[in-house]
Amino acid sequence: MSNNQQLNDLATQVRRDILRMVHKVNSGHPGGSLGCTEFFVAMYNEIMELNDEFEMDGIGEDLFFLSNGHISPVYYSVLARRGYFPVEELNTFRVIDSRLQGHPTTHEGLPGVRIASGSLGQGMSVAIGAALAKKLNKDNHLVYSLHGDGELQEGQNWEAIMYAAGNKVDNYIATVDYNGQQIDGATNDVLPMGDLKAKFEAFGWDVLEIKEGNNLEAVINGMKEAKTRTGKGKPVCVLLHTVMGNGVDFMMHTHAWHGKAPNDEQLETALAQNPETVGDY
């Protein structure tokens, strides 16, 4: 898929999926999911080289790891619409006997997912391990991961950040969803993290910023630029500036919808702002 209009239509449909999924079970995390919609659509349809059949080892293809597992709605929607599993299965999000658990897991055998995540701060280490395996296997494909900005408060990340630079894990691009929000409020109020760009650079990473993380074209161009920075002896960090709740006016610029589902009326309003494109599940 390369037509940006088609991808924008897909992004709108993914936002509808997210809203309908969390509304149905009155739980889940729409805020971060909506904010990362363009990123996921770009990654799975434009940026990553992916095999048609899902295999856990992922040899001969790019790999993606979601560290901030609570934004599972966007992950599930994009995986389903990329063909990893039937789109109708989105209807089972967070219900009993589902492969679409509240947080992503390999435990139920959902194609597309290679690690459980939800307890925060663990995904970067896993992604580094997968990148090291690619080097051992002489597989020139890349490993990608996504992290919340608030998630960087977990100390394990900084162990991983230090390791990746110190060991020149340069087949790896870690993206930070830089929306400045976490459950209890603005990251700057909960626990200020200072200058993330300077911090990653001080640890020895090559850092680039995507200022318009909810502009699909900007995300695609930014991630393509990030790819050109790989293989040069440094891990690559993308600071992806997004707006939590993007695409639904009353959910934007607030942490209030981090982990709250819309009611019937709010859903109607939100869906009206995101009309059906490629078809509801």
Partner: peptide, 21 residues
Amino acid sequence: FQIGIAEANMMGIAAGLTIGG
């Protein structure tokens, strides 16, 4: 892989290394 004094990272890297056999 010498991980350094960072056991949490070691467990995660180990998990990742399994992906790739």
